[in-house]
């Protein structure tokens, strides 16, 4: 082999050993930051040495290599004649289609279609609203202007059922397309699952009475049925019908009137 002597390889081997050594040191010492700096320093030094050697021993001058004739430039299944190429390409496409179709069957069995659950949540007539500690919420727990997140009692794990519960100031109510008759003691509840992409719409701006989604800033008007007034959402947040039971706790009087969360092809409207 022409070219420089064996010293090259020693540099590389030494640098490699240095990296392995500092990696081992990192594992032993556990002071990760120092170890990282040591590793970075060692490999950097080795690289610098290599570049230095490279610079010191410039290649003897540009070398060259002939290219193949431009007609067949070495596709692995090189075939100059168009007819054979077409046959091969066609065959490849057909094989890929068959393989894809074969893979589709097991893949389909791996799906767990969630549509049924997107259509309905765990809210039933009379379900109490509970907070993040599973405590039922009384109609005088929230001051006007306060808000909280609520779940159906016994279904704190149903992410699709979560609602933003807002107690409006006394002089405010909800107008269309919201339903004022679904308010209870000034409380209004909207699905917390954004109708754009499903993020929790937990960003409540009091006084301006807006709900903003933290993901894409879809903005909903609390006083007009959580209608989207700005940003990428298209549908209003579904409103949960509320009432107060005999013991003074907030309850739902049914499920949301429409599916919660982001849209999809066969979403019933």
């Amino acid at each position: 082999m022409t070219g420089p002597s064996n010293r090259w390889w020693w540099t590389i081997v030494a640098a490699g050993m240095a990296i392995v050594a500092s990696g081992a040191a990192a594992l032993l010492v556990g002071w990760w930051s120092a170890a990282g700096t040591v590793a970075a320093g060692t490999s950097g030094a080795a690289a610098a040495a290599l570049v230095g050697v490279l610079r010191a021993r410039q290649p003897p001058g540009p070398q060259s290599e002939e290219r193949r004739p431009s007609g067949h430039l070495g596709y692995p299944c090189a075939c100059a004649e168009p007819s054979r190429r077409r046959l091969l390409c066609g065959g490849a496409v057909a094989a890929a289609l068959v393989a894809g179709a074969a893979a589709a069957v097991p893949l389909w069995s791996a799906t767990k279609r969630g549509e049924a659950r997107l259509r309905a949540t765990s809210w039933r007539t009379g379900t109490r609203l509970v907070d993040d500690r599973n405590a039922p919420i009384r109609s005088d727990d929230l001051e006007p202007g306060a808000f909280s997140t609520a779940w159906p009692e016994g279904h704190g794990d149903d992410g699709n059922a979560q609602v933003v519960l807002i107690r409006l100031p006394p002089d405010r109510t909800v107008s269309g397309p919201g339903r004022p008759e679904w308010l209870a003691a000034g409380h209004v509840a909207y699905s917390k699952v954004c109708t754009h992409m499903g993020c929790p719409v937990g960003l409540y701006q009091a006084r301006t009475e807006l709900l903003v989604c933290p993901c894409h800033q879809a903005t909903f008007d609390v006083l007009r049925g959580a209608k989207p007034i700005h940003g990428p959402a298209h549908r209003a947040l579904p409103q949960l019908p509320l009432a107060i039971d005999g013991d003074g706790y907030l309850i739902a009087t049914g499920d949301f009137p429409e599916p919660v969360g982001p849209g999809y092809w066969s979403r019933p409207s």
Binding site: G36, A40, S43, G44, A47
Partner: peptide, 19 residues
């Protein structure tokens, strides 16, 4: 050798960033 130098110096920079 160029590739080796690139590998080592990139390892240095990336480990440095991580640290």
């Amino acid at each position: 050798i160029k590739t080796a130098a690139l590998l080592l110096s990139m390892a240095a920079v990336l480990v440095g960033m991580g640290a």
